[in-house]
Simulated scan of single mutants.
Amino acid sequence: MTDHAELTNIFADLSRLARQSVQAVSARVTFEDKGAGSFDPVTALDRDIEKLMRDYLLAKHPDHGVWGEEFGWSNEGSPIHWSIDPIDGTRAFICGLPSWCVLVGYLREGRHQAGMIDCPSLGELLVAVGGTTLRNGEPVVASNCMSLATARLATTDPCLFDKDEAASFSAVRQRTLVTRYGLDALAYARVATGDLDLVIENKLQRHDLDALVPVVRGAGGHVGDWSGGEDWDVGRIVAAASRALYDEAVAVLSR
């Protein structure tokens, strides 16, 4: 069993490994397109970070599973596993924008237990362990915004919604105070820190979301799917500063 102190230390080590890799990268970043029909960039840094973190975790806990975006599974079927997205927001990264993050989730029997959103360009490390989220060692709390009318909403790219999803998202957006785009995982970090109130997205893979769920929940927010449940594999995610705000958003989305 991995205790809270060990988890905190592991996340600190993973952040250190990722940031050391980032510092070694030259100013000019090259990338490949691994998409099939849509642009999906990957860089050498994506692979380097994941390999370093994967090797570290398996050396420390050889019986744990590790699932990463770039290299897939090690020890698939283990009751405890780590979910890695080495760079969430690679499009932002190759454009020189600071919103990309390093994501690591810790799950037991498929349930989210702890997570890390590391924002190297901003010097922020958010870690959720034991039901509490810390930013650079200090507790953070979601805003507790209770209604769409006062909510600050975000989604990474509204063009990713299909026709029906776009109509549902627009119905929510028209009821909110302000909407911002292009933040990737940083939007969820900002829900946890109280600076945004609501994030609505689709087409998320497990490596995109496994770290986000505990970080938002550890700050007092609520995360679920568009139907009010926790069907993570569908990839439609709502993260809200309060359960009341989540329920109101879901009610609009499901109309």
Rank of each mutant, 00 (worst) to 15 (best):
F161G: 03
L148K: 05
G137V: 15
L148F: 03
V140A: 06
P139H: 12
L126E: 04
R135T: 14
F161A: 04
L126H: 04
D157T: 12
E124N: 06
G130Y: 09
T155A: 05
V127G: 02
E124F: 01
N144S: 03
D162R: 03
N136M: 13
G130H: 05
T150Q: 15
N136Y: 13
L125M: 09
L134C: 08
A142H: 04
L134G: 04
G137L: 14
R135W: 02
E124W: 06
R135P: 03
L125P: 00
G137I: 15
L160A: 12
R135C: 14
E124Y: 02
G130F: 07
L125Y: 00
G137W: 11
V140R: 02
K163A: 14
V127R: 00
A128R: 07
P158N: 04
V140E: 10
T155N: 12
T133N: 05
G123N: 01
G137S: 14
V141D: 00
A154I: 09
R152G: 03
D157L: 09
S143K: 04
N144D: 04
K163T: 15
L148C: 02
L125Q: 11
N144Q: 07
V141S: 09
D164R: 15
G137E: 10
V129T: 15
A151M: 11
L148G: 01
C145F: 00
A128I: 12
T156G: 08
K163L: 11
P139Y: 12
A142V: 15
P139Q: 14
F161M: 04
S147Q: 03
A151N: 06
A128S: 15
L134V: 12
P139R: 12
D164S: 11
M146Y: 03
L122A: 05
E138G: 14
S147D: 01
T133K: 09
R152A: 07
E124C: 03
E138D: 13
A142E: 06
N136R: 12
A128D: 09
A142F: 05
D164P: 01
E124A: 11
R135K: 15
D162Y: 06
L125E: 08
E138F: 09
A142Q: 07
V129L: 13
A142L: 08
A149Y: 00
T132W: 00
C159A: 12
L125V: 13
V140G: 09
P158S: 13
S147Y: 00
E138V: 15
A151S: 10
L153P: 01
C145I: 07
P139N: 13
L126F: 07
P139L: 15
G123M: 02
T156R: 00
